[in-house]
Design a protein around this nucleic acid. Structure first.
Lengths: 333, 333
DNA sequence: ATTTGTTTGGCAACCGCTTGCCAAAAGTTG
DNA sequence: CAACTTTTGGCAAGCGGTTGCCAAACAAAT
């Protein structure tokens, strides 16, 4: 079935070009190191033989694999789509191959998987991680790590600035006359959850609103659905949820219970995931430039390869912003 | 920043266990080849040193990389989520690492990417491909290929059986009294599009219905939206779309135009993607066991490593089925 | 006790590429 | 033109495994 006419090696090129293999290696990897004429000759021979470096042979002596790991908790969570795509494209562009790994929301699976692929990659991006700060710190000792949406001392990260989006959202709600709002929180341990909650609280208080925390929910559609009763109990007229999935669950449950969104309850989600505009009404949400964040994550990782000694890098050029669709309206009098 | 205390090698183990490196290699890779006591000693030493094989060092002499490529047209297309997850899990379980590559719907990008990662992988799964039959055939000469949802002579594939789901769907529509239906087709060149259309036509004719083909649309939400006018022009009371994305676009456009779904128009999608139940009404759709298909794709690929000579393999144990939600109703009298 | 067969483990070559070191060739300088 | 510097390219030693071949050790058979 397979043909497998042995791929050309630098030895084949060397023979064809009449030079030493080491010369071929240098011609191809260190432009300028050898005579331009010789280099051209080598390149010509390489082309003629349709030569591709053997990445493994190259990785052995150099230790560089040109592969990056991207860890996510759940591949099917739409939050990651754009993140992954941004990372994938940036990686491809820079000559790196992205390996996507899924932890299935389990820190055990995550460590195992990481352990398995760590030898194969030059660095890792933790898209979402269940690992503890210490584990992350330890991981970062082995291979460069870039965290997305989380901060750990001494580790590089890319975390967007949520505050503009959150400020807009709270202002939007205030403008609509809402006085009492709530935050439907995600996982307790989540760094980003705490960040969002703190920002929300500050802004709400500043604008003279009260804000309740409906805490510790699964960051899923079901989690949002399950939080509905507590949202009603809190007696608020508007909520911001930890993410869109929860907002959608909440929205659907509200509708099912005969509570109209947005007239009875305004809902703002987070992330602008795929499908968040399929709902009825379409979801208003705080949008993150996820694709750019993905791109920035790999760029940051690559930078950290060079600047090993300079301590952790922080990519923070991205900001959140509010996207108003149909799930917010004037507060009921 | 990095510690990088050189990872242990088989030489370290050999020294610790007082044996030759080759013995270590055999103890670890060919159980039974050497004395059980020695093997235990070696394993103990390996554990003590926290040894991990260097996949690159291993790959050099063997040519086996334990990596698989999974090519998709668009990472952000939700159809692939479950497919990818199934593949990822199966791969991880079998000790393989999945590299996900995106062709961005371009056959050029696709060949380039493939060319780039081909040396690094043992085989490739083509989740969706823009490549021609000949290109696929050629690719398959270089490394084992498994096609998903497409057939090419001489190449292994995993294609689910669409007929049960399609039969159910047509029957469902017939039972609801629909006499004139349409198929909103996807890309012309798509193998699976043709398959679905043919099946649909057969079934419709068998049940005495007329069926129109609204052809050659982008397989996206916008594509579905754009097809709406032609659907109306066709004067049908129900449609089946090439995929859910199109169904959603069609549904939204219909609603926007004041055409009620399902009372004025029944819609059935394909794939049961994430978000297809967010719509109003939630979409009825023909469901594919995508995760299982992903799993089966990697299993088929691995099988083909062993059975090189036995010709192409075909995994076809999965079947489509109809999932009735809210977008279908009795035909208007 | 000798022959024959089977385990077991060491030796060394090899996978394809990189790179430090060195010598020959070419270029500069006074 | 000699003395010195720079450029260029070859040599060979790895990187960390795998594996064919072989000999020593042990077991079974005669």
């Amino acid at each position: 079935m397979r043909v497998n006419e042995k791929a050309a090696t630098i030895y084949d090129i060397a023979k064809l070009a009449g030079v030493n293999p080491s010369t071929v290696s240098r011609a191809l990897t260190t432009p300028g190191r050898i005579n331009a004429t010789t280099e051209a000759k080598v390149r010509e021979a390489a082309k003629q033989l349709n030569y591709r470096v053997n990445p493994f042979a190259r990785a052995l002596p150099t230790g560089k694999t040109k592969m990056l790991a991207f860890m996510v908790a759940d591949i099917t969570n739409p939050v990651f789509f754009k993140l992954v795509r941004g990372a994938e494209q940036a990686a491809a562009e820079l000559g790196y191959t992205l390996v996507i790994a899924e932890s299935q929301e389990s820190s055990l699976v995550e460590s195992d998987t990481l352990e398995r692929i760590l030898p194969s990659v030059d660095g890792v991006i933790l898209g979402t991680t269940r690992l503890s700060d210490q584990e992350i710190y330890a991981l970062n000792q082995q291979k460069p790590v870039v965290l997305v949406n989380r901060k750990v001392d001494g580790v590089s990260d890319v975390v967007p600035d949520n505050s503009p989006g959150i400020a807009e959202a709270v202002k939007h709600l205030a403008d609509l006359g809402h006085k009492h709002i709530a935050f439907v929180a995600g996982p307790n341990a989540s760094w980003i959850n705490a960040d969002r909650w703190n920002l929300l609280m500050e802004n709400a208080v500043d604008l003279g609103m009260t804000i309740a925390e409906i805490s510790s929910n699964e960051p899923t559609v079901d989690g949002g659905r399950a939080a509905f009763a507590r949202v009603r109990a809190a007696g608020v007229t508007a909520v911001v949820t930890y993410n869109d999935l929860m907002a959608i669950g909440l929205l659907r449950e509200a509708t099912a219970q005969g509570v109209n969104v947005p007239t009875d309850l305004s809902i703002i989600g987070f992330d602008n995931i795929f499908g968040s505009d399929f709902t009825n009404p379409p979801l208003s949400t705080i949008e993150l430039p996820l694709q750019k964040i993905g791109t920035e994550a790999v760029e940051t990782l690559l930078k950290s390869f060079i600047a090993e000694q300079d301590g952790p890098l922080h990519g923070t050029s991205e900001v959140a912003s509010l996207l108003v669709r149909g799930s917010t309206a004037k507060a009921k009098a």
